[in-house]
Computed example of a mutant assay.
Amino acid sequence: MDSKGPSLYAQPGSSADMNRSVEENSLVDGPLISPDALHSAISREFQTVPTPCHAGVLSLLHVVYVVLSVCVAVLCVLKFGQEDMCMSILGSTSGGDAIVLGKVCLWVLVLVFTGCMQHHHNKVRSRGYLRFYRQTQRLKHVPFTIHSAGNVLLLILLASKLSLTVRTYMLLSVLGVELLVAVPCLLYYSVKVMKFNRDRAAPDVSQEEFSYPYSVTSLPTETGFRGASSLEEVVEKQADLIEYLKQHNSLLSKRLLNLTAQH
């Protein structure tokens, strides 16, 4: 009789604890957002990178500049019988000065384009696409480096005491090398960015999550060093994880509000 006594009486707060436990279990066992639904929601919020159009315009201007420079060098600097036409077009400006001024304007355009690229790639990085950011990190600086090196060679040629003919041919050679290196780099960059825009992939952390079975242990939670990973790489991974979790929580909040409105 006495052994059954304690079981007949519930201790204070046991009913509330039981109700809370039931509610927590119901929340845990409730329907979760499928990874496919989350991926589709993130894909709808994907923002394309508009720099391929800018790279195409810059490449076209580069080709036009080199063609006009060759024409000016042949007709106005080397003076193959077209002095009157050069005077009517350039006025008091010499052909060599016109080529140099055009080179300065082209370099300014490349500088503006590089800044525009950096701005858009920083936005891509903040949205969690660190892999794409690393793949194009060096590539987007190549055109500016090439044109800056060409400016240095141009200054050396202008300061040299070579004959006008030799200097003109060397100048055209520098402009030709710039064209053959910078334009293919811009085209290759444009192809990579267009592929990125066409794929409309989820952020890197989301892709890692979808490549494994959905579970708590499969979430990217690396916080330390592993192998040859550097401190910068770990910090970037953590930044990517934080950005992904912000998006994830935002989508979960919207889903919860929709479910609440339905009930």
Rank of each mutant, 00 (worst) to 15 (best):
L171G: 08
F80A: 12
V100R: 00
S26P: 07
L68M: 06
Y133Q: 09
E23I: 15
N151Q: 06
S7A: 09
V205W: 04
D84M: 06
S26Y: 10
L187I: 08
Y212W: 08
I42W: 00
Y212S: 13
K4F: 09
G224T: 02
L187G: 05
I242W: 15
S59H: 00
S14A: 10
R127F: 01
E243C: 10
E24C: 12
P143A: 06
K161D: 12
T221Y: 04
A41E: 10
P143T: 00
L139K: 00
V77F: 03
N122G: 14
D199E: 11
V234M: 05
G81K: 04
L157H: 02
S7Y: 08
L219M: 12
M117R: 05
V191L: 09
V72L: 03
L90P: 08
L251R: 01
S26C: 11
D84H: 05
D84K: 08
H119R: 02
Q118E: 13
P31I: 02
N19S: 14
L153V: 03
Q247V: 03
R134F: 03
S3I: 12
N151V: 08
V110M: 10
A98K: 05
A73W: 02
S7M: 07
T114E: 14
I156Q: 12
L101G: 09
Y214I: 14
Q82V: 13
C185D: 05
L130Y: 01
F46D: 06
V64F: 01
G13H: 02
I33R: 11
V63A: 02
N258V: 15
V77W: 00
D2Q: 09
E45V: 03
R20C: 09
R226N: 13
A10N: 07
R127Y: 02
C105R: 14
T217A: 15
S148H: 03
H263G: 13
R131L: 15
N151E: 03
Q238E: 02
Y189M: 05
H62M: 04
D240Q: 11
D204F: 02
S14E: 07
S230F: 09
V181F: 15
K123G: 04
A41Y: 06
Q238F: 05
V177G: 03
M1W: 05
S88K: 09
T223W: 06
N258A: 08
A149L: 06
N122M: 14
T221V: 03
V110Q: 15
V104C: 13
V177Y: 07
V216L: 13
S229D: 11
I89K: 02
Y214F: 10
G91A: 03
L111T: 01
Q135Y: 13
L158Q: 10
I242A: 01
V63T: 00
L175H: 00
L180V: 14
S211C: 12
L75A: 13
Q118D: 14
S92Q: 11
L259K: 07
L27T: 06
L111D: 07
E233H: 01
H263K: 15
A202H: 06
H120T: 09
G224C: 10
A55V: 00
H248V: 06
L172A: 05
